[in-house]
Computed example of a mutant assay.
Amino acid sequence: MSKRELIEPNPGDKRYARRDDEGRFTEMVDVGKSLSQDRRREAKTEAPKGQGDRGDRRH
């Protein structure tokens, strides 16, 4: 699984995107929604760096 990268297709519209082996977008999610869901849920697994949507990071 590739790392998520932060893109801004339009000013003020930031998104986390994931690409496949050929560089095409496979998954895209709005940053605001992603961060708000992170705050609402307690993840059961610890995710590696760049995979924040797959679980929590230890601080």
Rank of each mutant, 00 (worst) to 15 (best):
H59P: 09
M1G: 04
F25V: 14
R57C: 02
G12M: 01
P9G: 03
R24E: 11
K14L: 11
E5I: 15
P11G: 01
D38M: 15
K14G: 00
M28R: 13
G23E: 02
R40W: 05
G32D: 14
V29T: 10
R58D: 09
A47L: 01
A43H: 01
D38Y: 13
K14H: 07
Q51F: 09
I7F: 07
R39F: 04
D20M: 10
R41E: 07
D21I: 14
G52M: 04
K44Y: 03
D56Q: 09
S34T: 15
V29W: 08
M28P: 00
D56F: 07
E42L: 13
R58Q: 10
F25G: 00
R19A: 02
G23F: 03
L35G: 01
A17S: 08
A17P: 00
T26I: 15
P48C: 02
A43W: 03
K44D: 06
R15Y: 07
A47I: 02
F25S: 03
R58K: 15
A43I: 00
R54W: 08
E22N: 12
N10G: 06
G50N: 00
G55P: 00
S34P: 01
D20R: 08
D38P: 01
L6A: 04
D20T: 09
A43T: 00
D38I: 10
V31I: 15
I7G: 00
R40V: 00
L6H: 01
S2Y: 02
R18V: 15
